[in-house]
Design a protein around this nucleic acid. Structure first.
Lengths: 240, 240
DNA sequence: CGGCACATTGAACCGACTCAACCTTCGTGG
DNA sequence: CCACGAAGGTTGAGTCGGTTCAATGTGCCG
């Protein structure tokens, strides 16, 4: 897939993901690791971007998870998508003046400004953006047509796939910093029902969830069960 | 809003919408009406773009409605969004090789290729794309956190707002080519329940639905009831 | 040790679904 | 001009997935 893996890409998950989206020349790579040097930290629960706020420029998440969400007048909350290491936020085609949703850190998050686009980075940003859109579509399917159990499995599989890009999956298991209540807000369910659904999956041996780590027992079989299709990034982007 | 409305924009709803997204110079306008000349027709139910098909280039819908949808293995269908006159399809930042969803004509649809981007058109395409994304987010909220009645009202208001841009709304009423079953597929409900919900709205005098035309009795009051916020396009794009 | 955030459990309830029938409209062909 | 069929709309009764409310448990951190 990549002819000459370099040190930075190996060691920093976020950069590893970006490098996986499109081949990077040395210059772009340098720009990225340079940007990563000037990183900023954000505490759990803090907003990276407020709803309706002006968007500065694209940011790269280096570490930690964030959620893109909107809160209704009566307090109901819906998370549209998760933002993982190596993901970009505020990655609009042109100056997208106002944020359509608030981005909140789910744990400690470190991030940096995305360096100005070189031709290679332009490609990376475009692919990343295309993937974002694919994930939004997948989210719509989940909420519109899947049952609670299917939603949960499908989401787990998506996270598995996405974290793989950054090299954050080991033996089909990965960090799981999600609260059941957070999970409820993505899946359009109540925390109570997420709890029960989760128990079913564990009870049936589909997954193991312990010590902040999720382990999928048989991703391939689960994918078949819920009709999940992995979003491809080969050459460029593609469908879920 | 627009200093010098010209004939084409006045007469063709699709062009009217595009002109409303960003100011058009004479050259871009000419390119658009020229492209509109070479239009193509598509019959009801036919696919404009098949799922997974290669995307040629951006298209402009001149007339009629289409739906961007995905069908699951077991036949369940979810419509992610409607595509209305003046909307673009396949409007990716770069070559987005494969379609993430199939686009199917809901009635007779006429469309044309989007002309190569002039600076002004570049702006139009970008704003249109930003709006598309805003509508996807709105759709996620609907499916994730709104009740059946709220979903229906919110969708009606969105369509009202979007069709307004093209000048297709008259006295808060507009064409309504949607089948209850189609409606069910957008809203993540069953046709039966859409029927009952629709009856509630009519019975309560919130809307009138007759002869393929929907009339909102008090959009402002309805918007307040479901917490609907109109997506703004002032200057550029913005949030719902 | 106390408190807080998160997870778990039970029981009652309800919004939306299922299944199945029937009705209306409309276009088409005999 | 009517008979027919197809597509969409309407209705009722029973069921179920997911919610609600409220209590209890558990682990962690100061």
């Amino acid at each position: 897939m990549k002819a000459t893996p370099r040190l930075v890409e190996q060691s920093i998950p976020a950069l590893r993901r970006l490098a996986a989206l499109a081949p990077l020349d040395r210059q772009s790579e340098a720009a990225l690791s340079d940007a990563a040097m000037r990183m900023r930290s954000v505490k759990p629960g803090q907003e990276l971007i407020a709803y309706g706020a002006a968007v500065q420029g694209p940011l790269i998440i280096l570490n930690g998870w964030a959620a893109r969400s909107r809160i209704l007048a009566d307090g109901r909350r819906q998370i549209m998508s998760f933002i993982l290491p190596g993901d970009l936020v505020g990655n609009c085609r042109q100056h997208c003046p106002l944020s359509l949703s608030s981005i909140v850190a789910l744990g400690s998050v470190t991030l940096c400004h995305a360096p100005p686009a070189t031709p290679a980075l332009e490609q990376v940003y475009a692919v990343s953006h295309a993937l974002d859109e694919a994930y939004l579509l997948a989210q719509i399917i989940r909420l519109g047509r899947l049952s609670a159990e299917e939603r949960l499995i499908d989401l787990m599989l998506e996270l598995h796939d996405r974290l793989s890009l950054a090299g954050l999956v080991y033996e089909d298991g990965f960090a799981w910093p999600l609260t059941q209540s957070t999970l409820a807000d993505v899946l359009g369910l109540t925390p109570v029902h997420v709890n029960r659904t989760l128990q079913q999956l564990r009870g049936r041996g589909d997954v193991t969830l312990r010590a902040g780590r999720l382990q999928l027992m048989d991703p391939h079989q689960l994918a078949k069960r819920v009709g999940h299709t992995t979003v491809r990034v080969t050459g460029s982007s593609d469908a879920a």
